[in-house]
């Protein structure tokens, strides 16, 4: 039983590490902001998700496992929201003049 659980952990974390690597390569190699964001979400969502999935069986307690899942859920939420905000900034349609780095428009 514990061998099977360990194999699940190793496979899931290896797959997660692969997505982190692929996301990082994409972040460095892709030509513009939007495609780089696309690469980043692979690392954030799938990479972290698979790592968490691999760690949950090792958490030892239900509470620990749920905490790990919460970490993933919060990272998903933050990642999705921040990607939206960066993408909007990149395409030049921001709503809040006070938050612009160059100050309010004349």
């Amino acid at each position: 039983m514990s061998v099977a659980v360990d194999i699940i952990t190793i496979v899931a974390i290896t797959a997660g590490a692969f997505f982190f690597l692929a996301g990082t390569v994409g972040l460095l190699r892709f030509p513009d902001t939007l495609t780089r964001l696309h690469a980043l979400t692979k690392a954030d969502n799938l990479g972290l998700g698979l790592v968490v999935l691999g760690l949950v069986p090792q958490a030892g307690s239900l509470r620990g496992g749920l905490k790990l899942l919460c970490v993933w859920a919060l990272a998903l939420l933050a990642g999705a929201m921040v990607s939206q905000l960066i993408a909007r900034e990149a395409s030049g349609q921001r709503g809040d003049p006070a938050m612009r780095h160059d100050g309010p428009p004349p």
Binding site: L77, M81, G95, D96, A98
Partner: peptide, 22 residues
Amino acid sequence: GPRHRADPLGTLAFLARLLPPV
């Protein structure tokens, strides 16, 4: 500070309603 104005139906406003309870 400055008065921040974001789109009330936008992403930031949604996050600012969803995240604080957590």
